[in-house]
């Protein structure tokens, strides 16, 4: 089951990367499929927790640099077939059946998708045909690499916390933060593909999600959100002369972080009340 979790983790991420690469209607379909594969991941994780088997979020690196979408789609088909064969280890037959039928359908649709030339790795470093200064381009590049990893990290951390918590109040907050990070990851990944600098977020270290103190994690997280807000503000200022739309996008992300901070403070208050 642990291998099944790892393989599902990898195929979820690769499907999302394929969505970023596509510039046609296939993009939305691939997004939907990556969401389904993410749900598979959380269900397999639940089975592991129920059975008491140890697991983590380690995985292999995922090579995605291709020139044509067909190359990544073929790889996804191979991965989906391998996972289907591995479902034999899943003793929850209802779950195994559900995942298997999903995988076969997804594989069928993917095999019929049109080929496309992929520009997500051409390092053009331009966005919306806006001529940013070199300084603003570098700042945006660095921001996208840092924050796409950060959003992936937050998805995995909050998912781990949620998977190991029976507290409905906290789980509501964790789920909101997961959903928000998914939106941010998609936004940033999409921009990276447009700039030709797409990369898979690196593997996160166990110590980040197997936290000793959730409260300390939340306190540190609030500091990080405040720092991220400042980065968005700086970036908005750096690009505002060349693009009002891009500046407005970073302001929009910045204001979203306010609510994240508020939710994390609510979670901390909840811990304090539980202790009182």
């Amino acid at each position: 089951m642990k291998t099944l979790l790892i393989k599902t983790h990898e195929v979820w991420l690769e499907t999302m990367m394929a969505a970023f690469m596509s510039q046609t209607n296939s993009r939305q379909t691939l997004y939907e499929f990556s969401d389904i594969l993410w749900r598979h991941f959380t269900w397999i994780e639940h089975e592991l927790i129920q059975s008491g088997d140890p697991y983590d979020y380690d995985r292999d690196t995922i090579p995605i640099k291709v020139t044509h979408l067909r190359d990544v789609l073929s790889n996804l088909s191979r991965r989906l077939s391998e996972i289907d064969l591995q479902l034999i280890v899943c003793t929850n037959r209802d779950l195994a059946h559900r995942i298997s039928t999903d995988l076969r359908y997804i594989e069928g649709v993917i095999s019929r998708m049109s080929n496309e030339v992929v520009t997500a790795f051409d390092a053009s470093r331009t966005i919306d045909r806006i001529a940013l200064t070199q300084e603003a381009t570098d700042a945006l590049t660095l921001f996208l690499f840092e924050e796409s990893y950060k959003e992936y990290e937050l998805i995995m951390i909050y998912n781990y916390l949620k998977a190991h918590s029976d507290d409905a109040f906290l789980n509501r907050i964790f789920q909101i933060l997961i959903d928000e990070s998914f939106f941010h990851l998609r936004s940033f990944g999409s921009m990276m593909a447009e700039m030709g600098i797409l990369g898979v977020p690196r593997v996160i270290h166990k110590s980040l999600y197997q936290v000793e103190s959730v409260e300390q994690f939340l306190r540190d997280g609030i500091e990080e959100e405040i720092a991220a807000k400042q980065q968005c503000l700086d970036l908005s200022a750096a690009v505002s002369k060349e693009s009002k739309e891009l500046a407005a996008f970073f302001d929009f992300i910045n204001f979203q972080e306010d609510y994240h901070v508020s939710l994390m403070r609510e979670a901390l208050d909840h811990y304090a009340q539980m202790k009182a």
Binding site: T61, P63, F145
Partner: peptide, 21 residues
Amino acid sequence: MTELDQEIIDHMANPKNYGSI
């Protein structure tokens, strides 16, 4: 980090030797 050239961007997108043994 100053002056992001292609080599640095490659390290950011595909860091070499990342992971565990």
